[in-house]
Amino acid sequence: MRRWSGWLLALVILALAGALQITLNDYYQRVLAVIAINIILAVSLNLTNGFTGDFSLGHAAFMAIGAYTSAVLTLPVRTKAVVLPELPRWLGQLEVPFVLALAFGALLAALVALLVGTPVLRLRGHYLSVATLGLMVIVQVVALNWQPITRGARGINGLPPFTTLLWAYGLMVLTVAVIWRLVNSPFGRDMIAVREDELAAACRGVRVFRTRLLAFVISAAFASVAGGLWAHLITAITPASFSFLLTFNVVAMVVIGGMGSISGSIAGAVLLSVLPELLRRVETSLALGGQPLYGLSQVVIALLMLAVMIFRPGGLFGRSELPDLLTRLRRPSAAPLANPRTSSSS
């Protein structure tokens, strides 16, 4: 029965997204699309940070790669001639469908992740965190300086608004499905084993480096897709869009939701997408000395994260998934059972 429930859920989500796309006003559509994008970001980051135990801070960088790739590839040829006149000829005359552009961005991000991951993931400790933040700086610098492709600090605007609710939720469902299946497969078991005890995993034959690299590369690819979606939702991108703030918020979603729980990441993403929308009103109305309180929602998120680390280090969900929690509610048992993680449900 559970094998069908996943498909059913996906169908319901897509039907809802399609219906809301027709009926809802622009503001709410945008909020909903942002939620879907944030879910993609959080769930994919969770693959490294939660399941494998490598703390990546590279999501802004990979989003930027996806956003710029998709922007340059999908911009109509005539617009390109005006906006990006210095583009190499072949690129200037290329106009690629949205999906292909997203796929290509994902590939590129995966490649970059491979390049960064190869030296760093062989090392123990949290070098990946610094290296990925470094990657963010590198990507920002390249976006600022590679004028012919990126238009530097001015950024690229006037992107086609491809990101509808159906696209956003379609790709969100795809992301969650792929990562859910990956986590509940031999690959996922290897990842969790590496997180629990890297050395012991190696002594049981797990190819530790390869496992860590796989998680990092997949995670980067999905972040890139989210970046592409985001670019075509906002329709304007600049290097400054892809700052530490972005990464930090995704990290907060994963941490608050519960590292190592996909349901948790989804909950965290929804929570932290809605919270700033609510707080934005407070920011502007609770003006201090005539100044709006910009930064308030970020301060709240940071405090929330500090509180989680001290009082509930597992986050909202710990490492449990919603289906398991529901089963446990129905059949409470005394012994501390492990998550039935590998029951191959899809």
């Binding site: 078991r189 290897d190 629990e196 005890d197 995993a201 002594c203 492990a338 039935p340 993680r341």
Partner: peptide, 23 residues
């Protein structure tokens, strides 16, 4: 003792078993 402490007993063994299986 070095187990994968927060995995089930069954999954602990599966991790070791699957090292010889191609996925």
């Amino acid at each position: 003792i070095r187990l994968f402490r927060r995995m089930s007993v069954l999954d602990n063994v599966k991790v070791a078993l699957q090292a010889r299986q191609s996925s």
